[in-house]
Design a protein around this nucleic acid. Structure first.
Lengths: 295, 295
DNA sequence: TAACATATATCGAATTTTCCGATAAAGAGG
DNA sequence: CCTCTTTATCGGAAAATTCGATATATGTTA
C-alpha cells in the first residue's frame, strides 16, 4: 500500500474546507503535519490534488475526480472501526427530505425505523430538492427523499413512490358537492397555493398548464398547514399533496374536489451517491424505504 | 483511525493461509513483523482475531465475522491505488461459470466485454455451482454465473436468464419428424446425457420426474460436444441446453424433438459476495451481464 | 504604501511506529 | 529424544509522523 488512511483523512478534511489549517484543527494535528502529509501523498503518486496559487488552495480536477472514491473508502474504514470496537451497527444516518415528504412521511418512517434500530441516530434535514441533491453529492447527507425530476452524474436516482395532488375546499364551499370541476370552474376560483420554487408548486403549475397564467392566485404560503387553515376559513381553494390532507378529509374539515380533466400525479425519488458506501444502518434504512414505505 | 491498511493486509494474508510465516512471505516482510502487526491490531481493539493453540493458528469466530468487511475494504483500497497511479479501471476480473455457461456463453460475453475494455484482464474459471459459490463467498472469485438453486447468507443471488433444455436426435432418427413426443416415446428411447451431479443432469432429472427411474440411460458423458457427436452417430437421443444446440440445429446435423408434456425450463443466476466492493471493471461487467446478455 | 493578519511550505528535532534478525517457546513427526 | 516447523518476543535500526519555529506568499487595512 503506497498510502495510509491518515493521509486520506487529511486529504478529505482539506478538500472539505479547502483550507489546511482548519483541516489540521479538525484532525487535532499541527498545520505543518497536515501540509506534509498532503505533500507526501502527492509525491508518492506524483500528482497534484490541489491547485495552489499563493496562499489559496483549491481542489484540482484530479482531486475532485478522486474525492468520491476516497470518501467512500474512509466511510467504510470508519464503519470497520465501529465493527472492531464492537459497537454494533449503530451509526448515525443523516437523511434529507423535502418539506412535504419530511413533515408528512419521513417522521413516521423514522419512528418506524427507530423501533427496530434503537441504537441508530437519524438526523432529518428538510430542504428543497436542489439543496438535498447537492448535499448528497457532497457526502454531507447519506441519502435524500426528493420530489423534482433530476439528472446528476454522481447520483443514483431510483423511483420511490407516486404522489398525487388534490384540489380541496371547505365543506360548505359551493362546489363541494360537484363531482367534476371543469377548466371553467378552476378559472373562477381563488387559489391558495405553495410558494414558487417549491416542489408542490411546480407540480401544481405543471398540472395547470394551458390555463396557468389565467388562474387567480389569491395567496401564496410557505407551509401546508397555513394553506389548509386558510381554505378551511373559506378564503379560497387549495391544492396540496394527498398525504397532507388525509386527516382533514377523514375529519371532514376539508373536502376533495375532483378534477378529472387534469393530471395531478407526480413521482418521488430516492437519491444516494453512486460511490457511497452503504453501511449496515443505511442498508436497513433503504430497505425500509423501498419495502414498507413505497407505493 | 486506530488501525492501518498494512495491518489489515497482514490480517487478510494470515487469514487466508492461517499461517503467519507464509503470510509474511507473501507480503515481503519478516515473520516477526507480521506477528507483531497482528498482535498490535488485536491489542488496539482488545480482541482475538485468531485462536492460538501452541503453534497452530486459526481464525476465531470474530475474525471470520470481520473478514468479509476487511476484504471489501482492502479491495476498495487497491482500487483506489490504481486510480491514484493513473491506471484507468483496468483491473483483473476473475469470474466463475458452470461448464455449459462457460463454454457456450461466457466466452462470447468476455469477447464482447474486452472489445470495450481492452485493458481489463478477465479470467474465467469453470467449475460446478457449489464450487463457484464457495469461491465467491471466500473472495477468490469476483462473481459467478451458476445454474443450480442456492441459498447462502453471504451471497447476493440475482436471477440472470432463463434457459431451456431441448431433446434432440439425428436428422434420420425415426422420431425426427414427430411433432410431439409422449412419455411413452421417451421411455422407449436410449438416452445420452450428462453425468450425475452436473447442473444439466439435475435439470434433466427434474424434467423427467415420474418416469425418471424407468428411462433407459444408454450413456453418460461429461462433455456436451461428446453427447452431440454420439447422438449424431445415431447412438440415441440427447437432452442439452438450447444454447449448446443452436449451431447444430442451423446446420441440420441435429434436430429438436418437441416434448410438450414436460417442463425443461431452468433458471440461471448471478452471484456476488454481499460485502464485495464493486470496482469499476466489475460494475461494467455486471451491467453487461444484466443488460446485453440476460433474457 | 506600509503594517498587519492570514495561510501554506519547509526545516530540524523529537517521538512513535514499523521492521528486522536473533532467539525462546511450543508443538508435530519421526 | 531429536529434528523440523511455527509463533512469540526482544533489542536495536530504520522509517514515518508529528511538532514548533520560521520563511514565504498574499490579501487587508490604516
Amino acid at each position: 500500500m503506497r498510502y495510509s488512511l491518515r493521509q486520506l483523512e487529511v486529504f478529505l478534511a482539506t478538500a472539505r474546507y479547502e483550507n489546511v489549517t482548519r483541516a489540521a484543527e479538525e484532525l487535532a494535528m499541527s498545520q505543518s503535519a497536515a501540509s506534509g502529509s498532503l505533500k507526501e501523498l502527492e509525491r508518492q503518486f506524483d500528482m497534484k490534488l490541489f491547485d495552489r496559487q499563493g496562499k489559496r488552495l483549491q481542489l484540482s480536477e484530479l482531486g475532485q475526480q478522486l474525492r468520491p472514491q476516497i470518501e467512500s473508502l474512509m466511510e467504510q474504514a470508519r464503519s470497520l472501526e465501529h465493527a472492531l470496537t464492537g459497537e454494533d451497527g449503530a451509526g448515525r444516518l443523516e437523511i434529507g427530505a423535502t418539506l412535504t415528504i419530511g413533515n408528512y412521511i419521513a417522521v413516521n418512517m423514522i419512528a418506524d425505523f427507530r423501533q427496530q434500530n434503537t441504537k441508530s441516530d437519524i438526523i432529518l434535514r428538510v430542504a428543497n430538492t436542489a439543496t438535498i441533491a447537492k448535499q448528497v453529492a457532497g457526502f454531507e447527507l447519506d441519502m435524500g427523499l426528493i420530489e423534482g425530476e433530476l439528472q446528476h452524474p454522481d447520483l443514483d436516482i431510483v423511483h420511490w413512490r407516486r404522489d398525487e395532488l388534490v384540489v380541496f375546499a371547505a365543506p360548505n364551499h359551493p362546489l363541494a358537492t360537484s363531482n367534476a370541476l371543469s377548466d371553467q370552474d378552476l378559472l373562477t376560483l381563488p387559489w391558495i397555493v405553495r410558494e414558487s420554487g417549491s416542489g408542490t408548486r411546480q407540480a401544481f403549475d405543471r398540472a395547470m398548464q394551458g390555463i396557468l397564467t389565467d388562474l387567480q392566485i389569491a395567496m401564496e404560503l410557505q407551509h401546508t398547514e397555513g394553506i389548509k387553515r386558510a381554505v378551511e376559513a373559506g378564503l379560497g381553494v387549495g391544492c396540496l399533496s394527498q398525504i397532507c390532507l388525509e386527516d382533514a378529509f377523514k375529519r371532514g374539515s376539508l373536502v376533495p374536489l375532483p378534477v378529472p380533466g387534469r393530471d395531478f400525479r407526480r413521482e418521488w425519488y430516492i437519491i444516494t451517491h453512486r460511490d457511497k458506501f452503504h453501511s449496515a444502518a443505511l442498508k436497513r434504512w433503504l430497505t425500509l424505504c423501498l419495502q414498507r414505505w413505497s407505493t
